[in-house]
């Protein structure tokens, strides 16, 4: 198993781990977002969906385990690579004039931290319920309504979705490169997929707090 340690020690190895876990997490957020939209079909549909997930039992916990592990690896690799990158240039430039780096690429680090804070909050908010003002186990729809009814919470959710948009834009467009796929025919496709995901997923998510905020769902 030494090779795994060696692989993960290398910068490229960690980047590949980050890309692979990122890909998994992209799949998760896309699915999560689609499920969320059930909220617009009303209380019964949404609660049924929630009960269905809860009813998966061991499978649910397996999924959660995989997601948590992916997240931890994603964050750990990002954190250590960032530290390493900072150490790689201790004396900085007086002038710098980046030309290629996109806004989304430059937002990866602070955006990532914001997303992490959000994810932790979100789990304690709508899954565990410990930071929720009026959490009722089994009543997912109600929890969302009361939880996002607090306007600063809704705004925080919206801000996090902004960060998610940027994160997806750079993350998806560059993860194929990191996984070693770069081809003149495919690169434009990846770029379009990344842009599409960066719009659709955060907008789909944001629809919920927006709807609650503006009273479109009750």
């Amino acid at each position: 198993m030494g090779w795994i340690a060696g692989f993960y020690r290398s910068t490229i190895g960690r980047k590949i781990v980050m890309a692979a876990t990122g890909l998994l997490l992209v799949g998760f957020v896309a699915a999560h977002m689609t499920g969320n939209l059930l909220i617009f079909r009303g209380r019964d549909a949404f609660d049924a969906y929630s009960h269905f997930l809860q009813g998966l039992g061991g499978l649910l916990w397996l999924g959660r385990g995989i997601l948590l592990a992916s997240l931890l690896l994603h964050v750990h690799s990002a954190w250590t690579l960032t530290r390493q990158a900072q150490a790689a240039r201790i004396d900085g430039y007086a002038e710098s004039d980046p030309r290629a780096a996109t806004r989304s690429a430059r937002a990866m680090r602070w955006g990532g931290v914001l997303l992490l804070v959000f994810i932790v909050y979100h789990i304690f908010h709508l899954t565990v319920g410990s930071v929720h003002p009026d959490f009722r186990r089994g009543e997912a729809y109600g929890n969302v309504m009361t939880g996002l009814g607090v306007s600063w919470v809704a705004l925080f959710y919206l801000a996090a979705m902004g960060a998610l948009a940027l994160h997806l834009r750079h993350g998806v467009s560059s993860l194929f490169q990191t996984l070693g796929v770069n081809h003149p025919h495919l690169n434009p496709v990846f770029a379009k997929v990344a842009t599409a995901l960066a719009f659709v997923v955060p907008l789909g998510f944001a629809a919920v707090p927006l709807a609650v905020l503006f009273g479109l769902v009750r």
Binding site: T11, Q86, R89, P98, A101, T178
Partner: peptide
């Protein structure tokens, strides 16, 4: 790659500044 890491270079985050 092992040597590159040992020399204290950072990792790639696909900014693309190098190519530029």
């Amino acid at each position: 790659v092992e040597r590159m890491d040992m020399e204290g270079f950072g990792g790639c985050t696909n900014f693309g500044e190098c190519h530029e």
